[in-house]
Simulated assay, not measured.
Amino acid sequence: MNKPLRHALFAVFCLSPLVDTAIADDETTYGWVEKATIEPWGTEVKVKLDSGALTSSMQAEDIEEFERDGDDWVRFTVEVEDEVSDDIVSKTFERPVFRNLQVSGAGGEDHRPVVLMTICMGETLREEQFSLEDRDDMNYPVLLGRRTIQSLGTLDVTETFLHDADCHEDSPLRAHADKDYDEDIGI
């Protein structure tokens, strides 16, 4: 191998970790567990970032599917521990069904409605797809899957709680979340 080529390869191998580190430093890094608020409710919950799951999921009970103006809708109650007050709180939501999810596992097949919900992580409001399931027996009421994680930034599986949920009141997405469908059920 000629000398200039050898020097060029040496530089690539030696400097590439520095380049990767510089790129990673520009991205926002999240831990495998973070805090987020469910909007427009504002309740703060622990959120697990799970790269093994494709679709995000949210704690939901009393899931009732119905039809409104020819469209599929779902009514559900989110009951969680508020990380700020340590109180168990609940709220009933109504949302149009975004899509239906078929989950196959050892226990058979399960059908879950998927809805759009808004959460605040760090300083960013995000409208994401969440499958609804009873997660009472799980440690984290909200799980973020790969579809959501890929748009966040970097996931550091050795860290937790790198961000506080601190979204601004005047965010356009918050205004959208506030107008959501809750007025239809008097909440």
Rank of each mutant, 00 (worst) to 15 (best):
M1F: 12
K3S: 12
P4Q: 04
L5D: 15
R6F: 14
A8L: 15
A8C: 13
L9N: 12
V12M: 07
C14E: 11
C14R: 14
C14F: 15
L15S: 08
L15Q: 04
P17H: 10
V19I: 11
D20F: 15
T21L: 14
T21G: 12
T21M: 15
T21R: 15
A22S: 11
A22M: 12
E27N: 14
T28R: 12
T29C: 08
T29M: 09
W32E: 10
W32G: 10
W32C: 10
V33L: 06
E34R: 04
K35A: 05
T37N: 03
I38L: 12
I38Q: 01
E39Y: 00
E39M: 01
W41H: 00
G42D: 07
T43F: 06
E44V: 14
E44T: 14
V45Q: 05
K46D: 13
K46T: 13
K48V: 02
K48C: 01
K48N: 03
L49S: 02
S51T: 15
A53C: 07
A53M: 02
L54T: 13
L54A: 13
T55N: 10
S56E: 06
A60D: 04
E61Y: 01
D62K: 13
F66W: 04
E67D: 11
R68P: 05
R68I: 10
D69C: 08
D69M: 04
D69R: 09
G70R: 05
D71Q: 13
W73Q: 04
W73K: 01
R75G: 04
R75S: 12
T77E: 08
E81S: 06
D82A: 00
V84P: 02
D87T: 03
V89S: 02
S90C: 09
K91I: 08
T92F: 04
F93V: 05
E94H: 07
N100I: 00
V103K: 06
V103E: 03
G105E: 07
A106M: 12
G107S: 11
E109I: 07
H111G: 06
V114A: 09
V114S: 01
V114N: 05
V115S: 01
V115L: 07
V115Y: 02
T118K: 01
I119R: 01
M121K: 05
G122P: 00
L125A: 03
R126Y: 13
E127H: 08
F130P: 03
F130M: 07
S131V: 01
S131Y: 01
L132D: 08
L132C: 08
D136A: 14
D136H: 14
D137P: 03
M138N: 04
N139M: 11
P141W: 01
V142S: 02
L143N: 00
L143S: 00
L144F: 09
L144M: 09
R146K: 07
I149N: 03
Q150W: 09
S151C: 02
L152C: 02
T154A: 10
L155F: 06
D156M: 05
D156G: 04
V157H: 06
T158N: 10
E159H: 04
T160V: 11
F161N: 10
L162D: 00
D166I: 01
C167W: 05
C167N: 08
H168E: 13
D170W: 04
S171W: 00
S171N: 09
R174A: 03
A177F: 02
D178V: 10
K179G: 11
D180N: 15
D180K: 10
D180Q: 14
D182L: 15
D184L: 15
I185L: 13
I185E: 10
G186Q: 02
I187L: 14
